[in-house]
């Protein structure tokens, strides 16, 4: 018997349990605006990277945004406003409503170990969408941290004179470029898992659109 079914049996008043609101409107709106902004930032970022690659590879033009360097820069420095303004709204709501605390904490090492093993066996539960397992908590917090790092390291590359102290914090201009790239890589890795899981558990996708 599933947890939801059990809940229905034990508490008839909660007969509509599966219909509970999983994601309030502000989460859904900021999520999809963020998705759009992140795609524009990554796509244009790849094109910018190609102008002066840090490693022995470039991104294919077909998957990069902006067509040429100036175009990519225009996209990047426009989408950054969407990313940052939306991100500030998200963090403000997340902290003030207590949702961050309720959803992402606590992360106990024991739960992590248990859920990690379950994940390896492909048995990690996504039954109750309102409760995140320890792996989810860790990954969501991790990608939020990567988001903060990518914005700050980006700012340090954009303004290495006005914000020289921030650039110095990231190890200087050249190192900051690698930090920015590493943060992008970890976000892309997160997205790969995130998007696959959204399709494996379609009700989670539904919940992010309809709220329940």
């Amino acid at each position: 018997m599933s947890i939801e079914a059990a809940a229905t049996t034990l508490a008839p008043a909660k007969a509509t349990a599966p219909e509970r609101l999983v994601h309030p409107l502000w989460v859904r709106v900021t999520h999809w605006i963020n998705a759009l902004a992140v795609l524009m930032m990554i796509g244009s970022g790849w094109q910018i990277y190609d102008a002066s690659p840090l490693f022995d590879f470039t991104f294919p033009r077909q998957i990069a945004l902006g067509n040429w360097l100036a175009g990519a820069l225009l996209w990047h420095f426009a989408a950054m406003w969407l990313l940052v303004v939306n991100g500030v709204v998200y963090f403000t709501f997340g902290i003030l409503t207590g949702r961050f605390r309720a959803r992402f904490f606590p992360i106990r090492p024991r739960d992590l170990a248990r859920d990690f093993l379950a994940a390896l066996r492909g048995k990690l539960s996504h039954e109750d969408l309102t409760v995140y397992n320890a792996i989810q908590k860790l990954l969501y917090l991790g990608v939020l941290l990567a988001g903060i790092v990518i914005v700050l390291s980006g700012l340090s590359i954009w303004k290495p004179v006005q914000f020289w102290w921030l650039t110095a914090f990231f190890g200087g201009y050249n190192t900051a470029r690698y930090v920015h790239f590493a943060a992008m890589s970890s976000i892309v890795a997160f997205l790969a898992v995130h998007v696959v899981l959204a399709f494996i558990v379609p009700k989670s996708l539904r919940a992010m659109i309809l709220g329940r």
Binding site: L65, N67, A70, G71, L74, F77, A78
Partner: peptide, 18 residues
């Protein structure tokens, strides 16, 4: 349209803001 001059002209408005 996404990659071409149309979008660049729109984006230049934001570039002026920048």
């Amino acid at each position: 349209i996404i990659d071409g001059d149309t979008s660049e002209n729109a984006l230049r408005v934001i570039s002026r803001f920048n």
